[in-house]
Design a protein around this nucleic acid. Structure first.
Ligand SMILES: [Mn+2]
Ligand SMILES: [Mn+2]
Ligand SMILES: [Zn+2]
Ligand SMILES: [Zn+2]
Lengths: 141, 141
DNA sequence: CTAGAAACTGAAAACCGTTTTCAGTTTTAG
DNA sequence: CTAAAACTGAAAACGGTTTTCAGTTTCTAG
């Protein structure tokens, strides 16, 4: 699970893959694009592109460690964001909005869990679920 | 999200729903049944039952808080286990096996995250991913 | 340059877990 | 008993994603 942080060390990408990457990267961190959002934005720049190609690009970029693919219980498609520091996600049960949460279980705790369970942990995924600010406001009205 | 821990306070369940509940409950904690596993085990006791009914039973039991439904990135169906204390799950990327992990972010940390992000957190889902013991052994051979 | 191999492309079809629809049957409440 | 509510199962639909196919484009030797 390599990660190319610098463009200089980044492998040469096909034109379309590059386009998909640019679309995801341009959102910056904290924005979470559903697969359908990526399609829409990519099509805006290259009308004829097939959704198969976009799926393949997303998979490759994910494998290269350039973007991260987010799966949240309750959401019905994957979400994408540029690769960056590990963090958790909050998803509103009511409106489906997704928000970054600056927290991740400490390395020490995870190492301890790995040891006591005799497993090798390569990834830790944390998601919070509940009601977002605006949904809480709207509901209390 | 109520939870009926005692049979005495448990609502009356239709025969089939009861059957599905028994199948899940009989596995005890620490066993994780994929939807297909539940079908198989239920059909063993009631041959003619339709999978639609099983899906409906699982949804209702989940809503009643009697069982918990687990969604793990990488797995292609839901898993079920009897309701119990909160815990995390480990899923082996290679063989797909699922294991309970006795850890959950502390109430204090979650409350702090909720406050600083102005969200209401109703659920915290933590999953670990990597290689299980047997897969590590098999790979090193 | 010129093969040939490897990577990429997009339409269409397949996939597959899950949900919905339909036309009933069974159970419950009064 | 009677009407409403809950439950049932077959079949069809759903929807995000993957696979297949028949090419086209790009890369790598030589
Ligand atoms: Mn994020
Ligand atoms: Mn468990
Ligand atoms: Zn919301
Ligand atoms: Zn394994």
């Amino acid at each position: 699970m390599l990660q190319y942080r610098k463009m200089s060390t980044m492998p040469r990408l096909a034109k379309n893959y590059r386009l998909v990457f640019d679309v995801v990267r341009k959102q910056g961190h904290g924005r979470h694009l559903a697969t359908a959002d990526v399609f829409r934005l990519v099509k805006r720049r290259r009308v004829g592109i097939g959704f198969t190609t976009v799926y393949r690009a997303l998979a490759k970029l994910r494998d290269l460690g350039l973007i991260s693919e987010i799966h949240l219980p309750g959401a019905d498609s994957a979400y994408y964001e540029p690769a960056g520091d590990a963090h958790a996600h909050f998803r509103c049960d009511l409106c489906g909005s997704v928000k970054d949460i600056a927290y991740v279980p400490s390395k020490r705790v995870v190492a301890q869990l790995a040891q006591s369970n005799a497993i090798e942990v390569n990834d830790v995924i944390l998601s919070l679920h509940g009601r977002c600010v605006s949904c809480r406001e709207r509901e209390s009205a």
